[in-house]
């Protein structure tokens, strides 16, 4: 399963590196969203700094939907879904590989967004380990849930519009918890952040487990 996951993740990342959609479309979209949020909130640095964690994770969430959409599109090419079904790869490995590829792209995006947020909003993080832990768990959860719902909508003609409708409500707890952890991390309130961190861990684990189980049937149904 892990060998298959490695193979699929490598393939997806290579395809993304070649197409450069993440670099030229998803990343600019995320930065643009951050700038527009700043415009909407006005020039007050205190307001921007307090809203920054929430804005950051909203930008990550919307960009995540685009990244998942790209991941689904890889398997939506002519005949490629049949090819994957005939490949002999373990569906659980395919799921883990696709989720890992999306998660790595999101992690890279988060680093750039964080730098942008520091420049635009002047935000600093005091409890860095807390913010990193929250980002890691939230990213895994977003990627896992996204790939599951991506597979669910993958065989449908309306997947472009359906995917955000399916994914965004499901990952709302991630948005809430990650924002709260980052707000706490910004002021060094580790205790307050840790309680929200306990939501992100199980979310990521549950969606990873669900994906391992259901990805095969979803691939067949598509």
């Amino acid at each position: 399963m892990l060998r298959d996951a490695w193979l699929v993740a490598g393939r997806d990342l290579r395809i993304e590196a070649r197409s450069r959609v993440a670099l030229w479309q998803v990343l600019p979209f995320a930065l643009l969203a951050l700038v527009l949020f700043a415009f909407a909130l006005g020039p007050d640095r205190a307001t921007l700094a307090s809203a920054a964690p929430g804005l950051f994770w909203v930008a990550v969430l919307f960009s995540g939907v685009l990244a998942v959409h790209r991941s689904v599109a890889i398997e939506s090419g002519e005949g490629t879904r049949d090819g994957l079904r005939l490949s002999g790869l373990d569906p659980a490995g395919i799921f883990l590989g696709k989720a890992a590829a999306v998660a790595l792209q999101l992690a890279a995006l988060e680093v750039v967004l964080w730098l942008g947020m520091r420049v635009l909003f002047g935000v600093t993080i005091r409890a860095i380990w807390l913010a990193v832990a929250a980002a890691a768990l939230a990213t895994i959860g977003l990627a896992a849930a996204g790939v599951i719902y991506g597979a669910l909508s993958g065989g449908l003609r309306v997947r472009e519009t359906l995917l955000p409708l399916l994914v965004l409500p499901v990952v709302a707890p991630v948005l809430l918890a990650a924002s709260r952890v980052w707000s706490a991390a910004a002021v060094g309130a580790v205790g307050a952040g840790e309680s929200w961190l306990r939501i992100l861990g199980p979310f990521a684990l549950v969606y990873l487990a669900v994906g391992v189980v259901v990805y095969g049937p979803l691939l067949e149904a598509g």
Partner: peptide, 22 residues
């Protein structure tokens, strides 16, 4: 099939290698 199960962004060599590795 009618539509070859290939990944457009990958080269011919990479596509065949993926099938074999899988």
């Amino acid at each position: 099939g009618h539509a070859p199960a290939l990944y457009d962004e990958l080269t011919a060599t990479e596509n065949v290698r993926f099938v074999l590795r899988a």
